[in-house]
């Protein structure tokens, strides 16, 4: 007769032994961990977690190489197994991990690239809704532009990186037809959108990122425009609006509310 709670104790021991580097850590399961077959479970849990991180961070993987990425992913996974079974969303804070990961210290742009890989995933799985058509610009022109509000589409993501050309590095490593050539080392931002249900990306300047930050926070276009001009006094807001609308960055226009 096994005491109540024996199953929970077994699972605590088994889960610990799966991640242990040293079998002495789980004396209760010595007869299991001594069997060569126990390695099947150990390998499988680590391999699935590492595979998921590699799949979710393709630009990072391409930059550092598969072997490096998998070694780093193993360290990450041993510390933080997936919290949810949707492995597509595993590794939400992998960029933060890379930022404090000593072997990556010289690759200062790597956390930024990881952040854009993550934003791609977020855009990919976000809720579906219709994007506002570029013709909305006419509606804007006919109404009170400054009191209008634009709602970013659920799948729209953006990020500004002040210190490095993260967008160029990321986009060159995200697709198979990567281009070479010199990179102008300056700050860059990125815009990811999902028109027609497929994630697309383009560069976005600092003013554009700040503009979207304001729209997302519920600000009027007057607020958003002012904030954008504060970071880039020469920003061409007309061109920015056209660019954002063409990319399908918004889902709704509220005039005059």
């Amino acid at each position: 007769m096994i005491a109540v709670g024996a199953l929970a104790r077994f699972q605590d021991d088994f889960a610990r032994a799966l991640l242990a580097q040293d079998d002495a850590a789980s004396p209760a399961l010595a007869t299991l961990t001594a069997q060569p077959a126990f390695a099947i479970y150990r390998n499988s849990v680590m391999k699935s977690s590492i595979d998921a991180l590699q799949a979710n961070y393709p630009a990072v993987s391409r930059i550092v190489g598969e072997e490096w990425l998998r070694a780093a992913a193993a360290i990450y996974a041993r510390d933080a197994l997936p919290g949810l079974p949707m492995l597509l969303q595993y590794g939400a804070d992998f960029a933060d991990f890379l930022a404090r990961f000593e072997p990556a210290a010289e690759l200062t742009y790597l956390p930024g690239v990881a952040r854009l890989d993550r934003l791609w995933t977020e855009a990919h799985v976000a809720a579906s809704e219709d994007a506002l058509l570029p013709t909305a610009a006419q509606q804007l022109a006919s109404g009170n532009f400054f009191r209008a509000r634009l709602q970013p589409h659920a799948a729209t993501r953006w990020a500004w990186f002040a210190d490095a050309p993260i967008y160029t590095i990321w986009s060159r490593n995200r697709s198979d037809d990567a281009v070479d050539g010199d990179i102008d080392w300056r700050g860059e931002g990125a815009l990811l959108t999902r028109p027609q249900d497929s994630v697309q990306w383009r560069a976005l300047d600092h003013a554009g990122c700040v503009f979207l930050d304001n729209c997302a926070a519920g600000g009027t276009l007057a607020d958003a425009a002012q904030a954008a001009l504060e970071v880039e006094p020469d920003a061409d807001l007309g061109r920015l609006m056209a660019n954002l609308l063409e990319a399908g960055a918004f889902s709704r226009l509220d005039m005059n509310t």
Binding site: L7, F10, D12, A15, Y41, V45, P85
Partner: peptide, 25 residues
Amino acid sequence: AWSTWRGAYHPDLLPFPRTTEALAR
């Protein structure tokens, strides 16, 4: 089998002793 345990998902199908206690669970 089991896979999620105490907030961590172990991406595999893990074994357990088939006890009467386990059957009830």
